[in-house]
Amino acid sequence: MKLSILDQSPIAKGRTAKDALNETEELANLAERWGFHRFWVSEHHDSGALAGTSPEILLARLGAKTSTIRIGSGGVMLPHYSPFKTAENFRMLEALYPGRVDLGIGRAPGGMPVASWALSEGRPRNASRFPQQVDHLLMYLRDQADETHPYPNVQAGPVIDTVPPVWILGSSPGSAALAAEKGLPYTFAHFINGDGGRDYMAEYLTGFTPGVQAEKPQNMAAVFVVCADTEAKAEYIAKSFDLSLLMLLKGEKSSGTPSPSEAEKIELSNFEAEQIKENRKRMIVGTPDLVREQLQQFAADYQTDEVMIVTITYDQDDRFRSYELIQSLGLHEKRSPDS
């Protein structure tokens, strides 16, 4: 099994976005040392809890600070942008770090509606364009724009001899079907949607049509994980994220990931307690032995040999320790420098 990391640059309550970005850089270096396969960063807007707004810029920094681990976007929210500019951004990254860059794309807004309006300067966001945008992006990346393309004579620079692979990211049957139709790798965000993903992945695998990038399907699934030395410690740490997800559901503006001690003091209604239980479907929480067992089952359920891990904690040391314990489980195949 390959193990990878999606880091959302979480901001702990009382700390700053700059702190979170520095932690992302430190974690990328540790992930490379520990042998994780990929290190992806996300795109979120107008968030007090997550600092990653521009994966392209952050990847430029991470590429310079690492040497072998694959780096990528998890992902660029393509409906906000032009495929041409996205192709240029990732051709630039590929030119700087050849053979190490992944271009993960999605159609989600990555924030509340007001942020989408601000990104488009008031123009309506049209996610229905996404399939066509994917086609145009692939054409620009591969210099294959033809008469079907609105701008057949323009070339995305810099002109290079390698192509960053495009991944479709999603949490719905539509994204799985699109990835299968376009012949692209697919990542299911189980950490966003804990229901239906196994069926959607099965449909992707059976419906895959070879495309310009791949002859056979390539798939991955991403899940929240908190691993600690004891079950009590893991459960205590996870209380922070339980509360964060609950606040998000209630539409409350976040000032950062709360501490476990703050979360423990909250008196939960029956509805809130049930919602936390429901959210735990998106998480794996426990000791190394339990996490090993559940990651193996998770990979089997999703018919994949690669799992991407998302860990958000209040304390940086707890987050880093969780990843350190996971890498010590002996689950993942060691990454070679040219893989």
Rank of each mutant, 00 (worst) to 15 (best):
Q132K: 13
P79E: 00
K182P: 02
G256T: 10
D143F: 05
G196A: 04
G157R: 08
P113I: 08
A263G: 08
L325Y: 12
R38E: 10
T206M: 06
R38V: 01
K233W: 01
A238S: 14
T257H: 11
E306Y: 05
H332W: 03
S336H: 14
A222Q: 07
L62P: 00
G286C: 08
T68K: 15
P288Q: 01
R15Y: 12
K233N: 10
I71Q: 02
E278D: 11
L295P: 09
A115I: 03
N126D: 15
P288K: 00
E147R: 10
M112C: 02
I312N: 06
V307R: 03
A31H: 09
I168N: 06
T148N: 09
F191Y: 13
T53R: 10
N89Q: 14
E278A: 15
K277W: 07
A156N: 08
A189S: 13
R70I: 03
R100Y: 11
M92S: 14
L138A: 13
E43T: 03
M201H: 02
E203Y: 01
L3S: 09
G75T: 03
M92V: 11
L248G: 14
S240W: 06
L96C: 07
P164T: 00
G174T: 05
P164L: 00
L205F: 03
L245M: 15
G251V: 10
A17F: 04
I326Y: 10
K18H: 10
G48V: 10
L96K: 00
